[in-house]
Every structure is written in C-alpha cells, then in structure tokens.
Simulated assay, not measured.
Amino acid sequence: MEDDVIGVTIATKAPCTDHRSDSAAMYRKDKSIQMKSSASSLYNNLSVLPISDKSLTYFTVVHANTVNMVSASADGLNFSHRQLQSKEGSVALSSSLITQASWCVLPSRVLLVLTSQKGIQMYESDGSIMVYWHALDALETPQAQAVFARGIAPAGGRYICVGTSSGLVLVFDIPTKGTNITLAEVLAEHRDAITDIACETCEGKDRDVDLVTADDSGVLCVWKSGDDFRLVMKISAYGVTCSSVKLWDGVIAAAYGTGQIRLYDASTGAISAELDSHARWIYTLDIAPETGRVEHRHSECVTDTQICGARFCDPQGSAFAVTGYDLNEIIRYVQL
C-alpha cells in the first residue's frame, strides 16, 4: 500500500476574527486514540466536537454498521468509548452500512447525525438518545442504483441538511428541544449522489450564500438558507467527483478525485486559486474557522495508510486528527 500525505493548509481571502501574527505553525505527532474497530473507506470519515467547558473532545469514526464514539480529555490521558449501530426506529439493522456520522452544532442544541443505506438517525450529542429517524424511500430510486444518505451539515440556525444517493438534499427543521423534527423542504438541483455538504463557518457576518452542496459528478450548488432555501448558483462539474467541500468567510474550498483543491469565490463562483499538492484522490478536507491566512503550514506522510478522515480538533487549528482505512486508531497532531 502506498503512503498518504496530509497537507495542512489554511485557506481564505481575509481574516474574519483577530489572529496571531506568528510564523509557520508546525505540528508534531501526539498520542493516538485507540478505537474498538477500524475505519471504513468513506469520504470524511471523522467528526470532531470540542467541548471546551468540560475540557473534552468527542470523536466519531464509522466502521461498517457501527459508529465508534470516543471522548478524550484535554491531556489525552483519559478516554471513554461508546458504539452506535445503524437502526430503523429502535430496531438494529445488522446489514445496513453507515455512510457518515457528523455532529451538527446549532445555536440551541447539538445533534449527532448518522446516515446509512436505510435512512437518517439523529441523536443527542453524546449518542445516548435517538430523537429522530427518517427512512429512505427506495421506490424513488432507480432499481440499479444504490440507496443511501450522505453529506450532513447544519444551516440557517435551525435546519440540518442531509444529502441522498438520488441527488436530493433533505432539509430538516430542528426545534430547540424535543423530538418534533420535521422534513421542511427537499432541494432537487443535483442529478448525482450527494458527496458532501458545508455551511458557512465564519460567524458574525450575514452573507448572500451560506450553504454548499457537492455531488459525484463534481457539481457544486450554492445556496442561501432560510424559510425557503434559494439556489444562488451552480458551479459546473470539474469532470471528477468533488469528495469534500468547505465554506468559510465567503470562500468555497473543494477537494477532487484528481488530488486538486479549488478555491472559489462563493458570491460569484469564480476560481480564486488551485492547489495541486496531492498526487491522488482526496478523501477529506477541513478548515480551522478562527485562523485566517492563505498559507501551506505542514505536510505529514502516514505510512501504509489510506487517509479517509481529517479534522481540526479546535477552532484555532492548534491540533488535528486523521483516520485511515482499516486502521483502529485516531492519529493526532498538535501544534508546536
């Protein structure tokens, strides 16, 4: 197996908060977190939720029909493990593969969202209580096409958006508490399976666009969320899958199967920059929202591992973690 390379690049056109003026930030490998099972080969197969008031960080990694949940203390010495399985209502589905697990942070609450071949599950942030289940309708999908949900992001302060294999984006209205979650809208602009969804992560600015959806053909749809979601523009297919996308301070960062990362102006769709650092398919992309400069900061070679998940562990980008296919550990790096 060939090695995979992690590139730590912080990309934006302008800072949205006050930032330090230090020079290049290098990282060193920290103690890894062992998991009860390994990571599946999926796009964006790692989600991280920092809990600052408890000095904890939550991690989720998908393995087949199970989600590995780990809470880690700030000093990296104490860990707590939990596993969630794919369910239909309260019944476990041993044959239904999970395609993604991600936390959605809304102003009033945090939910853990799981997508699978059967439907969409939403849990309280610690995974203790399932508050909502939405079944996928296989009858709406051509017989030869796989049925699954994939791509998860909060939007507009009260919504959670989830993509499907048919190209639909389901918009769920989330109450401030309780289980009265409703399907508010279905966005039907994509013709291929959704790969990833991203919301605007730079706070304090009201922008004309605040959501981006990506699909298997490479098409990006740019939206303004609200009581009625409005399509602002489509960015044409690049000829290859867009596997991962992020939206920050009016900049869209999109990663492709060619190994390229493209930066677009979210308001116009114009290309701002193209990064050609990777030689192979990119499975995951992340941005540290409280750091603002365009600069390559660090590269790391992970031997004999296919990287399938990478996330910053805090908004400042002072630490990040990665997962690898068939690897039963979360590898962590901290800033020197």
Score class of each variant (00 low, 15 high):
H296L: 10
A149I: 00
M35Y: 15
Q316L: 09
A270G: 14
N78W: 11
I197L: 12
L49A: 04
D53W: 06
T284F: 05
T291K: 08
E203H: 13
C199I: 08
V251F: 04
Y333L: 06
R311A: 10
I120R: 08
I261E: 03
Q83L: 01
Q143K: 11
M122N: 10
T201W: 14
P50H: 00
A24L: 15
S318A: 03
Q83W: 00
R150T: 01
T284S: 11
S244L: 07
G7Q: 06
I129E: 15
R150Y: 01
D249R: 15
A193P: 08
M26T: 14
K118A: 09
D216Q: 11
I194P: 01
Q306H: 11
N65R: 01
F312A: 07
P154W: 02
V61H: 09
L336T: 01
G259H: 00
V294P: 12
G250F: 04
D75N: 07
T291S: 06
A188H: 05
M1K: 08
S23W: 06
L112S: 08
G204P: 13
L42S: 00
C16L: 03
S47Y: 06
I129P: 02
N44S: 10
I235N: 00
V8D: 00
T141H: 14
D4I: 01
D227L: 01
V162M: 06
Y132F: 15
E203V: 11
E203C: 10
C104G: 11
H81F: 13
R20G: 11
Q145C: 12
V162L: 10
K177G: 06
A153P: 13
E329K: 11
V5W: 13
R150M: 13
V251N: 09
I120T: 04
S225C: 14
C202M: 14
S73V: 09
T303I: 07
D173T: 04
T176Q: 14
V67R: 07
A310M: 15
L136Q: 04
S80C: 12
A193Y: 15
V91R: 15
G151H: 01
A214L: 03
V169C: 08
A255Y: 02
S37K: 15
I6Q: 06
S102W: 01
E290G: 05
D265P: 07
W248L: 13
A273T: 10
H298L: 07
L168T: 05
V186C: 06
L93T: 07
K177H: 10
G7S: 06
G269R: 00
R82S: 10
D196P: 00
